[in-house]
């Protein structure tokens, strides 16, 4: 019973934070709503016995990523209410309709039985209990899974992070070189 209550409260915070991101005019408020949403998602991880992932969620999402967002907001000085960001009415209607349609699509996938009856529903027909999760030892199991079955994807993420870092440096550096070029010619 208690887990239903915890789920309900964190679900409200998740959705409220998400709505705050979408609706707030001030980017700083949007970023702080994002933190609320991320932390409530971490609570959902704890309910599902993924304690290590909850920790990572708080540190990486709630810490690093949101701080990066706030840093860029402050750096660019867009932390004021923007008049330019008012979308047209048709765009708002189209966005809301698309969101509702997508939600309806997923609900149909969840609740409507396919040709195979309930057997074909929700993809919950996979082999259950193949590697039973021991919630007191989820770090070791996660490590064993990543470094054995998912070793190649893991190395691919290392490559991805390297490329992202180099890409960010190159983009910012090249644009500085371009903007300084005309001045050099004038001099």
């Amino acid at each position: 019973m208690i887990d239903v209550v915890v789920f309900g409260v964190s679900a409200i915070i998740v959705l409220g934070g998400a709505l705050g991101v979408v609706l707030s005019k001030n980017p700083v408020r949007a970023a702080l709503s994002l933190v609320a949403s991320f932390l409530a998602v971490a609570v959902l991880f704890v309910i599902q016995q993924a304690h290590f992932l909850a920790l990572v969620q708080v540190v990486v999402y709630g810490g690093a990523i949101v701080v990066l967002f706030l840093f860029v907001i402050m750096l660019l000085g867009v932390d004021k209410v923007e008049d330019l960001d008012l979308p047209e009415r048709s765009q708002v209607v189209a966005g809301i309709v698309s969101g509702l349609a997508f939600f309806g699509l997923i609900c149909a996938g969840l609740f409507v039985s396919g040709p195979g009856g309930d057997e074909g529903n929700v993809a919950l027909t996979g082999q259950i209990g193949r590697n039973p999760i021991d919630s007191t030892d989820d770090i070791n199991q996660l490590a064993a899974d990543i470094f054995t079955r998912n070793l190649v994807p893991f190395m691919a993420t290392a490559l991805l992070l390297t490329i992202a870092t180099i890409g960010a440096v190159v983009m910012v550096k090249n644009s500085e070189a371009d903007s300084s070029l005309p001045e050099a010619e004038v001099n």
């Binding site: 998400a18 991101v21 979408v22 980017p27 979308p87 765009q91 809301i96 939600f103």
Partner: peptide, 16 residues
Amino acid sequence: AALFSIGLAGILIRKN
């Protein structure tokens, strides 16, 4: 599903 739909609508609506 609800969170994904809100994010989708946000991407379509916002211009920043």
